[in-house]
Amino acid sequence: MSLPHAVIIAGGQGQRLGGIRKADLRVGGMRQLERIIAALGDVTRPILVASGPRGRRLALPADCLAVDDLESPCAGPLAGLVAAVAQLAESGITRGLLVSVAVDTVFVPPDFVARMIDGLGDAATAYAAWGEDFYPPNAVWQLGALQQLPAALSGSEAPVSLKSLQRALGARRVDWAGLHPTNPFANINTLADLLALQRLAGR
């Protein structure tokens, strides 16, 4: 089986963090973008990094490729996914698996990719959950199910979020609560979140 492709969703402006890009935050002494790359492990290179609207580029390692949001009403994590799908299609890649992960998922497990693919089965997509909490950006997708997405964004039937897209595709839920005593998908939205996750990383 060929390796999955991967996209790191990193287009957020970090407004509640004073405008600091989450990818550039250091947690446990490591830049957050590099933490995610390490956790993804053995995926197809280059890893795509959805960096938001054109001109908002990040400093990336050599094995990564920045992709800009398309010109459309779409924004947020959905825009990052669509940008990755369009980039892969431009390279002639329309089949296989695409793993997506939010750049602020500090403790994404090292077996994230393998377990999400196992949980996908024959579904079009599957998303990560931990008990009652769920994380649409941390997901695996069948690329074949997403090929009409870039062209559909301007229509009235276009999804408005990853959650609505996953609902339409009949997404499976992959619950990690039985595997981890603490939430491995806790993310950074505020300074308080950052400080709490820094303390956990220090342990």
Rank of each mutant, 00 (worst) to 15 (best):
L3Y: 05
L3D: 07
H5Q: 10
H5E: 11
A6H: 03
G11R: 03
G11H: 03
G14D: 10
L17A: 05
G18N: 10
G19E: 08
G19F: 11
I20K: 15
R21Y: 07
K22T: 09
A23L: 01
R26M: 07
V27Y: 07
G28V: 09
G28A: 13
R31I: 04
R31E: 03
R31H: 03
G41W: 01
G41H: 04
G41R: 04
D42Q: 15
D42E: 10
D42I: 04
R45Q: 10
V49M: 02
A50T: 07
S51T: 13
S51P: 05
S51G: 15
G52E: 06
G52H: 08
R57N: 14
R57F: 06
L58I: 09
C64K: 04
L65H: 14
L70C: 13
S72P: 06
P73M: 14
P73R: 15
A75F: 11
G76L: 06
G76H: 09
P77E: 08
L81N: 14
A83P: 13
A84G: 15
E90F: 00
S91N: 12
G92V: 06
T94E: 11
A102V: 02
V108R: 15
V108W: 02
V108F: 04
P109M: 00
P110L: 06
F112W: 08
V113M: 08
A114H: 15
L120T: 00
L120V: 00
G121D: 00
G121L: 00
D122N: 02
A124F: 01
T125W: 00
A128S: 15
E132S: 14
P136N: 14
V140N: 00
A145V: 08
A145L: 06
Q147I: 08
P150C: 09
E157R: 08
A158E: 03
S161D: 10
K163H: 03
S164N: 09
S164Y: 05
L169W: 02
A171H: 01
R173S: 06
R173D: 01
R173G: 02
V174G: 12
L179N: 03
P181W: 01
P181H: 01
N183Q: 10
P184C: 02
I188C: 03
T190P: 10
L191Q: 15
A192L: 04
L194T: 08
A196Y: 12
A196W: 11
G202C: 13
